[in-house]
Design a protein around this nucleic acid. Structure first.
Length: 154
DNA sequence: GCCAACGTTGGC
DNA sequence: GCCAACGTTGGC
């Protein structure tokens, strides 16, 4: 059992978009960064905890709690000519990109980036580090617990 | 394998 | 829209 923070641009898929989907779950397609891909492909398991984070928007921050609901399988968009995620170097035999699916557990109040930064307990969170751009980062279980116990419930 | 050029991310 | 920080690409 691991814990993750996963960024989504609300203009692309917001927490409310996720909530409106069948089973409230979504394929996390479009990841084109090897480190993030490896996290999904090699380390994620069904049931892992996910913080659903709104990025590149007016109010960046945690918007909900989710779970990993499938293990990784080839990202379909890499094969689609018309997709902006199309990858000419990927083949069905040798896919390059993978995605898991993520299912909403609970929408939360918006826990802003600014608020996250205010807690010394979270100072080592990868997402809070300077220059960090990874869309998927592992979360320390202690950080996960702190956020759930201390911040989600406020 | 180096590294300059270019592209992307994402807070502000 | 700016721009710092990173990641990727490709010539050499």
């Amino acid at each position: 059992m691991r814990y993750w923070l996963m960024k989504s641009e609300p203009s692309d898929c917001s927490i409310d978009d996720l909530a409106a989907l069948p089973d409230q779950s979504v394929a996390w397609y479009g990841v084109r960064n090897y480190q993030a891909r490896n996290f999904m492909r090699d380390q994620m398991n069904v049931g892992d905890g996910v913080l659903f984070y709104h990025s590149n928007c007016k109010e960046p921050g945690i918007a909900g709690i989710a779970r990993v609901s499938t293990t990784a399988y080839p990202d379909e968009t890499q094969f689609e000519f018309t997709s902006k995620y199309f990858d000419p170097k990927a083949t069905r035999e040798q896919p390059r990109w993978y995605n898991v699916e993520v299912q909403l557990k609970q929408k939360t109040r918006l826990i802003s980036l600014q608020e996250l930064r205010a807690h010394p307990e979270l100072e080592n969170m990868r997402t809070l580090q300077r220059g960090n751009r990874l869309s998927i980062t592992p979360l320390d279980p202690v950080e996960w617990q702190f956020i759930l116990d201390k911040l989600v419930k406020e």
